[in-house]
Write a protein that binds this DNA or RNA. Structure first.
Length: 557
RNA sequence: GCCCCCAUCGUCUAGAGGCCUAGGACACCGGCUUUUCAUGCCGGCGACAGGGGUUCGACUCCCCUUGGGGGCGCCA
């Protein structure tokens, strides 16, 4: 019991953008561990990189964690006894520890210039070794370091790596031994006085009494450094669990670059097909015309930094205009695409962990009970969106109606869908009429046009040809015939409308599709919509008749 | 280049020496249901990276090769 009360884990994101799915998985696993043990889950913002910091990113991360229902016991917004929880507010703490190491001779001021460091690295590479920094002999004294600082030179503090073997016990990977001389003296304080990740992380984990550090495997190689620091500072060593990484299906890293690449490929294709001119693209993306011309005429341009730096809103406008669905990378992207947090959480739970049974569809409650570190998988995983899509479909199908409705309303508002204005009852009926959808975007695609302005209808030429124009305009003839009859259908309900269609079929010997499809194309512009009765009810009689009329009036000979 | 980690269907994974004719899910293919698109139901295709050991017996243990990944920053 006491043991459980002392169980403390943390999630420590760096505010350089939205919450990445990999980070979300790490957060989830930590949360699961904490809830299961009855321990504490701490959120700490690692904002020690002033250059890469993105304004407002921490709030976005916090928002996405909340959306995923991963609540924390200590951290931003909730406080706690071990704060502050922003590293940028803990500089005095780090300074104190750096001074301590300095005074004890366990760290020293290092005066090398970037050029000297580069030279050392090149030399090490040639010599076939991975340690490049050579400790100066004799070491600069504290006085010398201070004096150099006075002169305005860039001075950092390096940790003096002790000549010991370091053993890290990882709960997932087992024992990891790093021998003497395999680690170099790394920087613990930058020349601007801010701590590096290694120092800040070790100090905070200790002061925040973290008992288990569960993080991405990309930190595995750093861990021996952390252990050495802990020893030097007299800290207790937490337990470690390094999670496998998550990649794209192609095996590439899931990064925000993927979005740029997707847009670039689409835009370049459109330029090639003559659909767009670089000038149009420049305008939409809000960039200089010559830049756009250079980017989209050049296959390799997508790798250029100027292109990668393209502003996000411009990117989104482009993607929207080009009908490109950007690959989802961040939690935020999945929100925008109309996924349920339940299914994203469920899916992430399955990446790098398995319950050992065939159960794949489960809620958080089950996850808390079933989760365990020894069932975490060692190998990296690929993020299969198809599987997520399928899982989301199942979650939508099984979610309680009120829960689904609430999530749907959130989404319509965020997505700026015309369905955002619907009352609850209608929205619920739309959801029911689209049953079988995979994401809310599917609902939008199927029924959104019914609630949009008439002018927003884009008639799909293929559908018009096949359903309306074919056979000497048989479909148009059907519209002419049904239009007046639809005026008299009473009441205007799905049942009555369906009954009307069925009766007409019986009378004329037509098949339902012969009647419903022309109507569907006329009112939706495409051969896809909910069942014909519901479709027309959502539209209302007036709009139905008007759209059919408009369609007939706009008929091309 | 150096150090480290990993390795079962296309993908996520089950498998802790005989339960394996290697199981499930997604994807894919075929069929059925269906007023469109979906959904749903039924069936099918499909893997132990290669080579050496250890053992009466290896997907399971060991070694090598190959492949994938990470680290080697005044990024985290």
């Amino acid at each position: 019991m006491n043991d459980q009360a002392h169980f403390r884990v943390r999630f420590a994101p760096s505010p350089t953008g939205y919450l990445h799915v990999g980070g979300a998985r790490t957060a989830l696993f930590n949360w699961l561990l904490a809830r299961q043990a009855g321990g504490a889950f701490i959120l700490r913002i690692e904002d020690t990189d002033r250059l890469r910091h993105v304004a407002g990113a921490e709030d976005k991360i916090i928002d996405d964690l909340r959306w995923l229902a991963l609540d924390w016991d200590e951290g931003p917004q909730v406080g706690g006894d071990n704060g502050p929880y922003y590293q940028s507010q803990r500089l005095d703490i780090y300074e104190r520890h750096v001074q301590q190491l300095l005074e004890q001779g366990k760290a020293y001021y290092a005066l090398e210039t970037p050029e000297q460091l580069d030279a050392m690295r090149a030399e090490a590479r040639k010599a076939g070794t991975s340690i490049s920094y050579r400790r100066p002999d004799p070491l600069p004294t504290i006085e010398q370091g201070l004096a150099a600082k006075e002169e305005g030179r860039a001075v950092v503090v390096r940790f003096k790596m002790p000549p010991d073997d370091i053993v890290v016990r990882d709960m997932i990977r087992g024992e990891l031994v790093v021998g003497e001389g395999e680690l170099e003296d790394f920087v613990i304080q930058k020349s601007d006085g801010w701590p590096t990740y290694h120092l800040a992380c070790v100090v905070d984990d200790a002061l925040m009494k973290i008992t288990l550090v569960c993080r991405g495997q990309d930190h595995l190689s750093n861990t021996p450094k952390h252990v050495a620091l802990q020893r030097a500072l007299g800290f207790e060593m937490p337990r470690y669990a390094h999670l496998p990484l998550i990649f794209n299906m192609s095996g590439s890293k899931m990064g925000k670059r993927d979005k740029h690449t997707a847009v670039h490929e689409a835009a370049a294709r459109w330029v090639r097909d003559g659909k767009w001119k670089p000038d149009d693209i420049a305008e939409r993306a809000g960039v200089a015309a010559d830049a756009a011309a250079a980017w989209f005429g050049d296959k390799k341009a997508k790798r250029k930094p100027e292109f990668q730096a393209m502003p996000v809103d411009g990117l989104l406008r482009l993607a929207d205009a080009a009908d490109v669905v950007l690959p989802e990378i961040d939690v935020h992207d999945f929100r925008a695409s109309g996924y349920l947090p339940e299914s994203l959480g469920n899916f992430l739970n399955l990446l790098g962990w398995s319950g050992g049974d065939d159960l794949e569809f489960f809620d958080r409650g089950h996850a808390v009970k079933a989760f365990s570190v020894d069932r975490i998988i060692k190998s990296n995983a690929k993020f299969d969106r198809d599987k997520l899509l399928s899982l989301n479909k199942d979650w939508c199908a099984k979610a309680p109606a009120d829960r689904l409705l609430a999530a749907f309303k959130d989404w319509t508002r965020a997505a700026g869908s015309p369905m955002a204005a619907l009352d609850d009852d209608t929205a619920a009926r739309v959801l029911a009429a689209c049953a079988g959808f995979r994401t809310f975007r599917d609902v939008q695609a199927k029924a959104g046009i019914l609630f949009a302005d008439d002018a927003d209808i884009e008639y799909d030429p293929k559908a018009v040809k096949k359903v309306l124009a074919k056979n000497d305009g048989a479909g148009y003839a059907t519209l002419e015939r049904l239009h007046p009859e639809l005026e008299t259908v009473e009441p205007w309900t799905a049942e009555a409308i369906e009954a009307f269609f069925n009766e007409t079929c019986e009378k004329t010997g037509a098949k339902l599709g012969d009647l419903a499809q022309p109507i569907r194309v006329a009112v939706a512009g495409r051969p896809v919509s909910p069942a014909i009765g519901e479709t027309l009810v959502f539209l209302g009689r007036e709009k139905t008749l008007r759209r059919i009329r408009n369609c007939l009036d706009g008929r091309q000979s």
